[in-house]
């Protein structure tokens, strides 16, 4: 696991625009350009989720982009960090009352760092990414110890959560039994939504 240490020195980021007004998106891009120049920290913007360590999401989620956000998240290799950029990604912001807005990104995938602001300033975005590096280091340490599913700092794999009736995602909480994530533990119900698997007797004995 020694090679993994290089990630915190040069994390690659991927950016997706949920339903943002563009303000935060162009500030994310502005971070990459000479004025702020995050590349001096080794941070590179990539378009490929499988190359990325940090997922920057701007804007809130709606029915149409939920699968896109989840696909990007699931394709990213472990350890990974999600940073919600701007108040829309945090809670829905000024658009929270709109009929097509479900809410912040944490309704769909676990979020590690929240960067509020409308629009979030590049300095704040860089700060959020640097905070994300701390979380990344924790997750790496957990990975190195052989904990298969790093759930540090309140981050849960979304497969381990459940959906309630109206489609809201409920992350796994403390006290829930964590099942080793070696094999997919969840199954899809007839609507294609993830459901928590039923416990077998054997697993309960192990825990």
């Amino acid at each position: 696991m020694k090679t993994m240490a290089s990630i915190t020195k040069s994390p690659w980021i991927i950016h997706y625009d949920g339903s943002s007004c563009n303000g935060c998106d162009i500030e994310v891009l502005a971070c990459l350009t000479p004025m702020y120049d995050v590349e001096r920290f080794g941070i590179i913007n990539t378009g490929n989720p499988k190359h990325a360590d940090i997922f920057l999401v701007t804007g809130s989620v709606n029915e149409q982009n939920i699968p896109v956000v989840k696909q990007i998240y699931n394709q990213m290799p472990n350890p990974k960090v999600v940073v919600a950029i701007g108040i829309c990604a945090t809670s829905g912001g000024i658009f929270r009352d709109c009929y097509n807005i479900i809410g912040g990104i944490d309704k769909v995938i676990p979020v590690d760092v929240y960067v509020p602001g409308c629009a979030a300033r590049p300095e704040a975005i860089i700060d959020g990414v640097v905070k994300g590096l701390g979380v990344l280091a924790e997750k790496q340490a957990a990975l190195a110890k052989g904990i298969a599913d790093p759930t540090v700092s309140g981050a849960y794999r979304y497969e381990n959560g459940t959906y309630d009736g109206d489609g809201t995602f409920l992350p796994e909480e403390e006290g829930d039994t964590v099942i080793a994530a070696a094999e997919p533990q969840s199954t899809d119900d007839e609507n294609g939504l993830r459901v928590k698997p039923a416990m077998t007797e054997e697993q309960e004995v192990d825990d």
């Binding site: 709606n62 149409q64 982009n65 658009f95 709109c98 807005i101």
Partner: peptide, 14 residues
């Protein structure tokens, strides 16, 4: 299209 539709014209009622 439709990935970032918010429906903000409707907010005029609120």
């Amino acid at each position: 299209i439709g990935y970032i539709h918010r429906g903000l014209e409707k907010l005029v009622e609120k």
